[in-house]
Structures are given as C-alpha cells and as structure tokens.
Design a protein around this nucleic acid. Structure first.
Length: 566
RNA sequence: UGACCCAUGGUGUAAUUGGCAACACGUCUGAUUUUGGUUCAGAAGAGUCCAGGUUCGAGCCCUGGUGGGUCAACCA
C-alpha cells in the first residue's frame, strides 16, 4: 500500500442547463437566494413516466438547492377534472418517494385572488369583456403569419367592463356568451399575446369550489399568478409553453411590488420508444378498452409501471440518466428496462418457477420422498439468507430447456446428457416419452445421489444448470407476460395514420398454468421476485387466496436467445 | 410567406472563463460463474447538420443556410 490516499470516488453530480441557470440566478442574488419549485398536474388523468421525469426534475432540483417544492393541482377546468385523479396523483408522487409536506395547493385556492386581480387589470384598462362568439374571436385572432384585428368591444369603458365582469361572475350570462380578455397586442407576432382570454363562463360544478363560481380562469391567467403567490422561484415546464412565456411575464409584471419574481424555464418532455405519452391518447386506450385500465401493466403510467413491478428507485434512476435538455428526442425503452434490472438484481428474492412445464421423472428417486435442498435467496445480498426447496421424484422443468436434437451451442438437457438441477442434483436424461402425436410429454431421467446440492461429487462438469420445481409440491400460478404495446417506435409520429393502427396484438400473453416453488405461497401484491434464469416478476393485485397471479416485469438479459435470433 | 426553440457515436446526455470530444445504454470480444443473469477486462463506433467568419486555437462566439419542433381551444 502506498501512503497516498486513493482519491475519494467523486460522486458525479449530473448537472443540466436548468441547474446552470439557477446557479446564475443565485450568483446574482435573485429572490433572496431561495429556490422553490412546484409540480403542477391537472387532475384530469393519471400520471405517466413523462410526469415522473418532471417530478424528479422539479422536486429533485429543490432538494439539490435545499429549497422547497409544492404540489399544486391546476384545476381551472372543472369540466375535465375529478377528485379520483387528485387521489391517484398524490399516491403516485408519494410512491415515487417525494414528500411535499403541507405544501399541497390547488389553483382553485386562488380563485378569489385571481378575480380581484382581474378587476384590478380592468381598472387599469388592461382587460375587457368581449361579447363575441368563439368563432368571431377566433377569426379575429389572425394566423401565425397574419396579425389579428381588434375586437369591437376592446374599447369599452372601465365602468362597463367592471359591471359586465361582475355580472359574469353573478351568473347573469350563459356559457360562451362573454369572456374576459387581457388587452395586450392583437398585432403581436406571438399568437398568445393577441388579447388572450382570461375568463370564460362555465356553469359547471367544480370538484372543490362546488357551485361558487360560474366563471373560470384560463391556464395562462392562473398559472403564473399561482406561482407568484406561492413564492415559486423557478417554474419548470415543458417546451410547448415556451411561446407562452411572454404572457406569463406580462401578467407577473402587473402583479406589482415585489423584488421577487418567478421565472419560467422550459425543458423537453420525455418521449419513450414503442409507447405513447399523452394523457389524451392514454385515456383513449383506457376508454376504448384497448388496455385494462390506467394501471394496466403495459401502460407507461406510474400506476401501470408500479403494477408491472417497476420500483421507485428504478424510475428515479432512469429520470436521472436521461438528463434534461431542450432537445426533442426519443429515449429507448431499453434504458428503462435496464434501470429496473439494475435495481431488482440487487434486491429481488430469487425463486424458481417454471412457465412452460415439461414433466421429468427421476426414475431412481424414491416415490413419495421429499428432499428439502438449500437454496440461496440472493447471491447479490448475503444477508437475504437461504431457504429450503422440495425435491421429489416428479418434477417440472422448462420446455425450452430440453431439445431432442440439440444444435451445437445448446448446452441444456438432451437425450443422454447430464445437467445440474439448481441447488439439487445432477440428472441425466435416459428416455423421451411422447404421445400419439409425437409431442414430448415426459422425460425419464436418473439422478446422481452424490451430487446433492448441485456439487459435482468427482469434479466432473456440466454445461448447464436448469431451474426446476417439484410437480407434487409446487404452487400453481398464472403468469402474465407483456410485450410493447406498439410495434412502431413512434406510434404518434405518423400524421396520416392513427396511433392505434400500430398496436401490438400480442402485447399480453397469459400463461394460466405455471408452477412456482412453495416459498412464494404467501407473497403479497407487488412483492418482487427473480424467477431464476427467466426474469423479474411481481405479484399482481388480481391474486386471490385460490390463485396466484404474477406479472413479468422484465426478462433477464438472454444471450442465448439473442444468439439464436441471428 | 411570422414568432419562438432545437441540432454532439445507433440512442440519451457531458465537455469548467474557446485548449487534442467524455459518460451511460446498446453492440462485439474474452474471463469468471451452481442463473446463457450478475461481475470483471477489453474493442468497435461521432470529429460535433452545412457554408463562411473571428481566433494561435471553435462543439462552444458571429453571419447565413439546411433540417426538425412548438404556436392560430372559451384545454392545460
């Protein structure tokens, strides 16, 4: 040993352009050196992996700078929003491992303040009531390349505007009859600045404010102000809001007297290959029964991934790895899968299970005897200990692990060949039993009693170790295998073709009769296992006292299958 | 015939005030292995969209292109 100390392995803290901008803000002493972020979901659907990226970014950033983060529901459109969604969102964020403490807010908390501020803007000649129809307003808005024209109601007096707005609130008008608009600039090259609508009339019951209001603020009018009132310093959102930023700033500019101001920064939303990532499309899959609910294990929703067997750690590591930029890209699902394998490899209880059973009779093993052999629970974690697995005369092995005429590189069982049954014995295939159709129905093997534990008694080697299960002691289970929901890398990237055209008809495969070692008998929903040599599986919530149901989270890497494909 | 944004190996991200392009996933070798997993060792793969300019020196700065994205809900 040298006396030079090895350099501490520096934890490479990944940075990103947002952190760099925050560093710059801090260097300038902005906002009293506070960093305060928020995650602002609209409670109109379930959270997906894209939201997880945003949550990790927003909340992770606050944690990095010892700041605070809020959870705020953007509930300004009661026609789409429901309490069910509020609950699922909270559950998902909590599951990911974030605790927002008492900082749980709703845009609807600010309806009164928002109203007052609107009145103020009217008084300052910065907002007006427009009587026109949606069609008329839309026609006047112009196009991206042609400026808009001003509404005939734009020059209404302050008094008239105040009166009309009060009556809008009082419910004197029908839906769509009037709107409140900000008076900005109809000739702006930015469409969002062309007198955006601040309030619309909606006689709709709100999940929190009930029937108190019949006018509701629009996103652009509510968001920045909510940020301001909560003391948010960095309002991180996705790229499509970039063109809204001047409007965000416009409203905040008129929210006077403070040496503090929130700043909107945009990043690229997550795109994952072979799936879709918009609430609208996911809702469509659910509503039209292309999947079995929001938490279908094939869905990229947080609840779907959870049910599928993904862990919070794996998702957060994934979010870390993909980084944060303004580049629109496409992340390979393989990276997500790598993240779960990595996490589960360290923690998952190992167990043996046979998906496609092939019966094996050990002809020289006494009938009725049960030999409890020792098995290691997790080679990656010695503290996980060992367990006993019953070995009997009749067993099941995986059909794929036997070939009557094995090709060159097939190491597994074949006529006359000896292999190891993991943790148990060396066995040799003596006879292949077929039915009248020529189907292999049973293998008759002999075992070497001296190889108990799977150790070769005389130093002889076998090229394969197979997983197995006792035909008489094993537990039956249903196993659900999942494949990508879509066959196309980018199902929503085809302008002419509906994304559903690319759905993978074989995304769900149900194996009703699999066998698992008795150890799993009392497993509870969401418990994770590695079925040795197969993959990671978890207990599905459909499991009952009578029937165990497993989901395959992800298969193990399989270089044999890969080599075989070529 | 607008505004705003983006452009680095196959994919995703790095590159301190301009200084010989780094990491992860994937791919391919080989070793170890009672999981064809894990782990370990190694390799291939971009000269940074294009064209100019500034500079001793440009992925980083400037100009002009090209390609892609976003914006015309009383959605968020």
């Amino acid at each position: 040993m040298t006396d030079k100390k090895a350099p501490e392995k520096e934890e490479v803290v990944k940075t990103n352009f947002i952190h760099q901008q925050i560093d710059a803000d801090l260097a300038e002493g902005k906002n009293g050196n506070r960093v305060h972020t928020r995650f602002p979901p609209e409670p109109n659907g379930y959270l997906h992996i894209g939201h997880a990226k945003s949550i990790c970014l927003n909340f992770g950033t606050a944690e990095k700078y010892n700041g605070l983060y809020n959870l705020r529901f953007d509930d300004t459109n009661p026609s789409k929003e429901e309490t069910e969604y509020v609950e699922s969102i909270k559950e998902d964020v909590r599951w990911l491992g974030f605790d927002w403490g008492d900082r749980e807010f709703f845009a609807s908390d600010y309806f009164d303040k928002l109203y007052d501020f609107a009145v103020e803007l009217i008084q300052n000649g910065l907002a007006y009531v427009d009587d026109q129809t949606p069609e008329e307003i839309s026609a006047q808005r112009g196009t991206p390349t042609r400026p808009g024209t001003e509404s005939p109601f734009r020059t209404r007096s302050v008094e008239e505007n105040l009166d009309l707005f009060a009556r809008m609130k009082a419910g004197e008008f029908q839906d769509g009859e009037k709107v409140l608009r900000a008076k900005v600039d109809m000739a702006s090259p930015n469409m969002h600045m062309r007198d955006p609508i601040m309030y619309r009339i909606m006689h709709v019951h709100h999940h929190r404010t009930g029937d108190k209001w019949c006018i509701y603020p629009m996103y652009d009018y509510a968001h920045g102000q909510s940020d301001f009132w909560e003391g948010i310093t960095h309002s991180i959102c996705t790229l499509e809001f970039e063109v809204h930023r001047p409007l965000y700033d416009w409203f905040v500019d008129h929210l006077k007297d403070a040496e503090y101001r929130p700043r909107q920064i945009e990043f690229a939303r997550l795109n994952l290959s072979y799936t879709v990532m918009s609430k609208r499309k996911l809702l469509e899959l659910v509503k039209d029964n292309h999947v079995n609910g929001w938490d279908d294990p094939r869905m990229p929703t947080i609840s779907g991934l959870r049910r599928r067997g993904y862990t919070p750690t794996s998702i957060r590591n994934f979010a870390d790895r993909i980084g944060v930029t303004k580049t629109n890209g496409m992340i390979d699902v393989g990276l997500l899968e790598h993240s779960v394998r990595e996490d589960l490899n360290k923690s998952a209880q190992r167990v043996m299970g046979v998906l496609n059973p092939l019966k094996v009779v050990i002809t020289n093993f006494p009938e009725g005897e049960v030999d409890m052999v020792d098995a290691i629970n997790n080679h990656e974690d010695e503290s996980a200990g060992t367990r006993k697995v019953p070995f009997t005369r009749e067993l099941y092995i995986e059909r794929d692990d036997f070939m009557e005429e094995p090709p060159r590189k097939f190491f597994r069982l074949a006529p006359g060949r000896e292999v190891r049954l993991r943790y148990a014995y060396f066995v040799t295939c003596q006879e292949v039993v077929k039915d009248e159709n020529g189907e292999i129905v049973e293998l008759r093997c002999t075992y070497d009693p001296d190889s108990r534990g799977g150790k070769s008694p005389d130093g002889r080697k076998v090229k394969a170790t197979l997983h197995w299960v006792s035909a008489t002691e094993a537990v039956e289970a249903e196993v659900r295998l999942y494949d990508r929901l879509f066959n196309d890398m980018d199902p929503q990237g085809h302008k002419e073709v509906d994304f559903k055209e690319f759905m993978n008809a074989d995304s769900l495969q149900i194996l009703p009769k699999c066998y698992v070692e008795p150890f799993v008998k009392d497993a509870k929903a969401l418990d994770h296992f590695q079925f040795e040599r197969l993959g990671y599986f978890n207990v599905d919530k459909d499991t009952t006292a009578e029937k165990l149901v497993f989901n395959r989270t992800v298969a193990l890497r399989d270089s044999w299958a890969k080599a075989n494909k070529k």
